[in-house]
Amino acid sequence: MSIKHGLLALLDQGPRYGYQLRAEFESRTGSTWPLNVGQVYTTLGRLDRDGLAQPDGEDDEGHVFYRITDAGRRELHAWFDEPVSRADRPRDELAIKLAMAVTVPGVDVVAVVQHQRAHTLRMLQDYTRLKMRAADDDLAWQLVLENLVFQAEAEIRWLDHCEARIARRDLTAPAPAPLPAVSDGAPAVRGGRTRKGRR
């Protein structure tokens, strides 16, 4: 998450001081990206150094205001114009975990997938509940929530896909014997696969 550009977007709407920026940043993103005030001041320092924002006087209480510069505005618009690269994001731990699980003998991969899916679905239910409560006019907050919703949904679809792939693999080449099921008493899926002999 680019704090730098987030702050520039707020400063684009008029001069602000550190605490104000932090509070607004968090309210726009619904605290999904918590920010400490230290990060805000460090970032303001860098913006000043790079000529993207500059100090703009103090109020009676000693709050130092910052204002965006023309260069800052150009930087901000370039940011909006540029798609966010997926490659910049950290690698997904879940993908690594499943890659390991399918190769390490004795791991019940289907149980790993099912556990993860139920977990992600519960997260998705949480996001949805927050959405139900979100005010109709708070579009920024709703869009942030929906970003989380669509990401969770994508993860679930991918997990469904993994489950089907694993089932298909196990049909052709028997997998290493799994440890006793890790899942909470759910009936084992393995035995049920070929029961109907469909297709």
Binding site: Q114, R117, L121, R122, T128, A186, V189, G192, R193
Partner: peptide, 30 residues
Amino acid sequence: ARHAAWADRVVFLRDGRLVDDTGRQSEAES
């Protein structure tokens, strides 16, 4: 899943059996 998430509880069927269940959630668990 995005639509299922509006439910209080989500169950999964596979080959005619219930294999998984998110359970009913209490608000506190959120």
